[in-house]
Protein backbone atom coordinates (compact mmCIF):
# COMPACT_ATOMS: atom_id res chain seq x y z
CA UNK A 1 0.00 0.00 0.00
CA UNK A 2 1.31 3.45 -0.86
CA UNK A 3 1.98 5.78 2.04
CA UNK A 4 -0.36 8.72 2.59
CA UNK A 5 0.26 11.35 -0.06
CA UNK A 6 1.79 14.57 1.24
CA UNK A 7 0.18 17.88 0.51
CA UNK A 8 1.26 19.02 -2.97
CA UNK A 9 1.87 22.50 -1.70
CA UNK A 10 4.41 21.35 0.89
CA UNK A 11 7.92 22.45 0.09
CA UNK A 12 10.06 19.56 -1.13
CA UNK A 13 13.51 19.18 -2.68
CA UNK A 14 13.74 19.15 -6.46
CA UNK A 15 13.18 15.84 -8.13
CA UNK A 16 14.64 14.88 -11.49
CA UNK A 17 12.25 12.65 -13.35
CA UNK A 18 14.00 10.53 -15.99
CA UNK A 19 11.29 9.26 -18.28
CA UNK A 20 12.35 6.37 -20.49
CA UNK A 21 10.63 4.75 -23.41
CA UNK A 22 9.50 5.06 -26.96
CA UNK A 23 5.90 6.12 -27.60
CA UNK A 24 5.75 4.30 -30.90
CA UNK A 25 6.59 0.91 -29.40
CA UNK A 26 3.47 -0.25 -27.58
CA UNK A 27 3.89 -0.55 -23.81
CA UNK A 28 7.35 1.05 -24.02
CA UNK A 29 5.42 4.33 -24.13
CA UNK A 30 3.80 3.75 -20.72
CA UNK A 31 6.17 6.02 -18.75
CA UNK A 32 5.66 8.89 -21.16
CA UNK A 33 1.89 8.46 -21.00
CA UNK A 34 1.90 8.35 -17.19
CA UNK A 35 4.05 11.46 -16.89
CA UNK A 36 1.83 13.32 -19.36
CA UNK A 37 -1.04 12.71 -16.94
CA UNK A 38 0.72 14.24 -13.91
CA UNK A 39 -1.22 17.05 -12.19
CA UNK A 40 0.39 20.31 -13.36
CA UNK A 41 1.20 21.48 -9.83
CA UNK A 42 3.06 18.25 -9.12
CA UNK A 43 4.79 18.16 -12.50
CA UNK A 44 6.00 21.71 -11.87
CA UNK A 45 7.96 20.45 -8.86
CA UNK A 46 10.06 18.09 -10.94
CA UNK A 47 12.59 18.51 -13.70
CA UNK A 48 11.26 16.18 -16.35
CA UNK A 49 13.78 14.67 -18.76
CA UNK A 50 12.51 12.51 -21.60
CA UNK A 51 15.54 10.33 -22.18
CA UNK A 52 14.47 7.48 -24.45
CA UNK A 53 16.98 4.91 -23.18
CA UNK A 54 18.52 5.50 -19.75
CA UNK A 55 22.12 6.55 -20.20
CA UNK A 56 24.82 7.07 -17.58
CA UNK A 57 25.01 10.75 -18.62
CA UNK A 58 21.42 11.22 -17.48
CA UNK A 59 22.30 9.98 -14.00
CA UNK A 60 25.58 11.90 -13.81
CA UNK A 61 23.66 15.09 -14.58
CA UNK A 62 21.40 14.69 -11.53
CA UNK A 63 22.48 17.34 -8.98
CA UNK A 64 23.81 15.96 -5.70
CA UNK A 65 21.02 17.63 -3.75
CA UNK A 66 18.24 16.37 -6.00
CA UNK A 67 16.36 13.13 -5.91
CA UNK A 68 15.95 11.04 -9.03
CA UNK A 69 13.00 9.02 -10.20
CA UNK A 70 13.57 6.76 -13.21
CA UNK A 71 10.35 5.69 -14.88
CA UNK A 72 10.19 2.98 -17.51
CA UNK A 73 8.29 -0.04 -18.68
CA UNK A 74 9.69 -3.31 -17.39
CA UNK A 75 9.75 -6.94 -18.41
CA UNK A 76 9.66 -9.81 -15.95
CA UNK A 77 6.75 -8.13 -14.15
CA UNK A 78 3.07 -8.92 -14.67
CA UNK A 79 1.66 -6.61 -17.36
CA UNK A 80 0.11 -3.54 -15.73
CA UNK A 81 1.72 -4.18 -12.31
CA UNK A 82 3.54 -1.15 -10.85
CA UNK A 83 6.85 -1.86 -9.14
CA UNK A 84 9.46 0.32 -7.40
CA UNK A 85 13.04 -0.22 -6.30
CA UNK A 86 15.65 2.14 -4.80
CA UNK A 87 18.36 2.98 -7.31
CA UNK A 88 20.94 1.74 -4.80
CA UNK A 89 19.34 -1.70 -4.86
CA UNK A 90 19.20 -1.62 -8.63
CA UNK A 91 22.94 -0.85 -8.72
CA UNK A 92 23.59 -3.80 -6.41
CA UNK A 93 21.88 -6.09 -8.90
CA UNK A 94 24.28 -5.20 -11.70
CA UNK A 95 26.30 -8.14 -12.85
CA UNK A 96 23.94 -10.71 -11.40
CA UNK A 97 22.97 -12.70 -14.40
CA UNK A 98 23.53 -11.76 -17.97
CA UNK A 99 22.26 -8.43 -19.23
CA UNK A 100 19.10 -8.82 -21.23
CA UNK A 101 19.06 -5.37 -22.73
CA UNK A 102 19.89 -5.22 -26.36
CA UNK A 103 21.62 -2.05 -27.37
CA UNK A 104 23.69 -0.61 -24.61
CA UNK A 105 24.35 -1.28 -20.95
CA UNK A 106 21.19 -2.51 -19.20
CA UNK A 107 19.59 -0.15 -16.65
CA UNK A 108 21.08 -1.86 -13.58
CA UNK A 109 24.58 -1.56 -15.05
CA UNK A 110 23.94 2.04 -16.07
CA UNK A 111 22.99 2.86 -12.46
CA UNK A 112 25.96 0.89 -11.14
CA UNK A 113 28.37 2.65 -13.49
CA UNK A 114 26.94 6.03 -12.47
CA UNK A 115 27.40 5.00 -8.84
CA UNK A 116 31.05 4.12 -9.50
CA UNK A 117 31.66 7.47 -11.17
CA UNK A 118 29.71 9.57 -8.64
CA UNK A 119 30.99 7.67 -5.61
CA UNK A 120 27.49 6.54 -4.72
CA UNK A 121 24.27 5.96 -6.61
CA UNK A 122 22.02 8.96 -7.07
CA UNK A 123 19.41 9.14 -4.37
CA UNK A 124 16.13 7.96 -5.77
CA UNK A 125 14.02 5.20 -7.04
CA UNK A 126 13.12 3.26 -10.15
CA UNK A 127 9.39 3.07 -10.83
CA UNK A 128 8.25 0.65 -13.50
CA UNK A 129 5.17 -0.93 -14.95
CA UNK A 130 5.12 -4.39 -16.38
CA UNK A 131 4.69 -4.35 -20.15
CA UNK A 132 3.25 -6.99 -22.41
CA UNK A 133 3.76 -5.89 -26.00
CA UNK A 134 6.44 -3.65 -27.47
CA UNK A 135 5.63 -3.87 -31.15
CA UNK A 136 6.35 -1.00 -33.50
CA UNK A 137 3.25 1.13 -34.04
CA UNK A 138 1.22 -0.60 -31.36
CA UNK A 139 -0.65 1.28 -28.63
CA UNK A 140 -0.64 0.43 -24.94
CA UNK A 141 -1.88 -3.07 -24.13
CA UNK A 142 -5.17 -3.23 -22.20
CA UNK A 143 -3.32 -4.37 -19.04
CA UNK A 144 -0.91 -1.45 -19.15
CA UNK A 145 -3.64 1.04 -20.05
CA UNK A 146 -5.55 -0.18 -17.00
CA UNK A 147 -2.46 0.22 -14.78
CA UNK A 148 -1.51 3.66 -16.02
CA UNK A 149 -3.32 5.62 -13.27
CA UNK A 150 -1.52 3.55 -10.61
CA UNK A 151 1.78 4.37 -12.30
CA UNK A 152 0.95 8.08 -12.36
CA UNK A 153 -0.08 7.94 -8.70
CA UNK A 154 3.20 6.29 -7.78
CA UNK A 155 5.20 8.93 -9.61
CA UNK A 156 3.25 11.64 -7.78
CA UNK A 157 4.07 9.93 -4.48
CA UNK A 158 7.76 9.86 -5.32
CA UNK A 159 7.87 13.52 -6.38
CA UNK A 160 6.14 14.60 -3.19
CA UNK A 161 7.92 12.16 -0.89
CA UNK A 162 10.00 13.89 1.79
CA UNK A 163 13.69 13.16 1.52
CA UNK A 164 13.90 11.09 4.69
CA UNK A 165 11.31 8.73 3.25
CA UNK A 166 12.80 8.20 -0.18
CA UNK A 167 12.99 4.43 0.04
CA UNK A 168 9.73 3.18 -1.42
CA UNK A 169 7.32 1.30 0.74
Amino acid sequence: MSPARPDATTAAPRTVLLVCGEPERGDDGAALAAVAALPPLVAARATIVRCGQLDVDHLLAVPDDAACVVVDAAVGVAPGEVVAMPLADLADRAGRGAPRSSHTLPPDQVVSLAAALRGSPPEGVFVGIGGRAFGLGAGLSPEVAAGLQALTDRIVDEILRPPHARRPG
Binding site: A94, G95, L113, A116, L117
Partner: peptide
Protein backbone atom coordinates in the same frame (compact mmCIF):
# COMPACT_ATOMS: atom_id res chain seq x y z
CA UNK B 1 32.98 -4.95 -16.59
CA UNK B 2 33.23 -1.23 -17.17
CA UNK B 3 31.86 -0.78 -13.66
CA UNK B 4 34.88 -2.52 -12.15
CA UNK B 5 37.15 -0.55 -14.48
CA UNK B 6 35.50 2.72 -13.37
CA UNK B 7 36.20 1.87 -9.73
CA UNK B 8 39.94 1.60 -10.48
CA UNK B 9 40.38 3.98 -13.39
CA UNK B 10 37.63 6.55 -13.31
CA UNK B 11 39.38 8.98 -15.73
CA UNK B 12 39.51 6.32 -18.45
CA UNK B 13 35.79 5.62 -18.29
Amino acid sequence: SAIALAQDDRPAV
